[in-house]
């Protein structure tokens, strides 16, 4: 039943059909979970486990500079007749154990004709590229190989500079629905579903796809997270995984890297900020459709 598009049509309101929808979703997930790894496949995953002891994560992070980059956006204010939105990216730097920190912001206007998600991704890459010569461990919230950023020039540049300066760059995908590993093993499911039975702090070996390496780490009872990095870092895999897990141990949920948690917090454009932005740019031509909806 593994389909990337669902040709299902239900006649009626979503909430009238909620039971049908629920049973459809349950059935879909059951199909995904049915796919199991056999012993041959399991060996190929090269699963290892990070050994932990009290305060191990602080020892692991002591003296390391980590940098997190994340962005947020205000979509073009269509309802006010303003065809321009904005993207804001925060870059948070923390020197663990030294009590030093720095926060930098990048922002840019984006017209309604441009793909704002792509513009945001490019600005995030620029923030990382600016940092790559300064050393440290760079974290990015997301995938470097999502379909919409395929063959992205900034990613290529980031990876090249990362190798030139020996500065590790790690993409962290909390909820991944990639199928790279499943495809490789000839299985029809999502990688994270396939690996759901891994134990906490277990991780796979890195798998190579073009110029990128990816692997999965189980950080909590939920589905495993995916990490990605340039292929030159493959020999550092165990250190990368250990650092990612240590960084997650600092986070509020222990399942998401602290530095990305903070980058997200700093980059977020709150509801109040959006209102401030709207007041500042003012209305150009209010949409009557929007006014009708507001009533």
């Amino acid at each position: 039943m593994f389909e990337t598009t669902l040709n299902v049509r239900l006649r009626g309101n979503i909430f009238e059909k909620i039971d049908e929808l629920k049973s459809f979703i349950d059935g879909y997930l059951r199909e995904m979970e049915k796919v199991k790894l056999d012993n041959v496949n399991l060996t190929e995953l090269g699963i290892k486990r990070v050994e932990t002891k009290q305060r191990w994560y602080l020892e692991c992070l002591e003296g390391k500079k980590v940098v997190g980059v994340d962005g947020s956006q205000i979509n073009p204010l269509r309802e006010l007749g303003i065809p321009i939105g904005v993207v804001q990216v925060a870059k948070v730097k923390v020197w663990h154990g030294e009590g030093k920190k720095d926060v930098e912001y990048y922002s840019m206007p984006v017209t309604i004709d441009e793909n704002i998600n792509l513009k945001r991704f490019d600005l995030e890459m620029e923030a990382l590229i600016d940092e790559v010569g300064e050393g440290g461990w760079l974290f990015f919230d997301g995938s470097f190989m999502a379909p919409e950023v395929k063959d992205n020039k900034n990613v290529e540049k980031l990876f090249r500079l990362s190798e030139e300066h020996s500065t590790p760059v790690i993409g962290y995908v909390d909820k991944s629905f990639s199928r790279d590993l499943s495809d490789r093993l000839g299985l029809k499911t999502y990688d994270s579903f396939l690996l759901r039975n891994m134990k906490v702090f277990e991780y796979t070996k890195p798998f190579i796809k073009n110029n990128l390496a990816y692997a999965y780490i189980k950080l909590n009872p939920a589905l495993p997270a995916r990490i990605e990095y340039p292929v030159w870092m493959v020999d550092m895999h165990d250190d990368v995984v250990k650092l990612v897990i240590a960084e997650c141990q600092l986070g509020i949920t222990k399942g998401y890297p602290y530095i990305l948690e903070r980058a997200h917090k700093f980059s977020t454009i709150e509801h109040g900020d959006r209102a401030k932005f709207m007041r500042a740019v003012k209305s150009y031509s209010v949409s009557f459709k929007w006014m009708a909806k507001m009533r």
């Binding site: 602080l58 992070l61 948070v92 923390v94 020197w95 663990h96 154990g97 030294e98 009590g99 030093k100 920190k101 926060v103 600092l250 509020i252 602290y258 903070r262």
Partner: peptide
């Protein structure tokens, strides 16, 4: 939100932001 697992000295050193 972090004090339950880290001493405040560690928070200052490791989570300075």
């Amino acid at each position: 939100e972090y004090i339950d697992r880290l001493e405040s000295d560690d928070i200052k050193k490791f989570l300075p932001d």
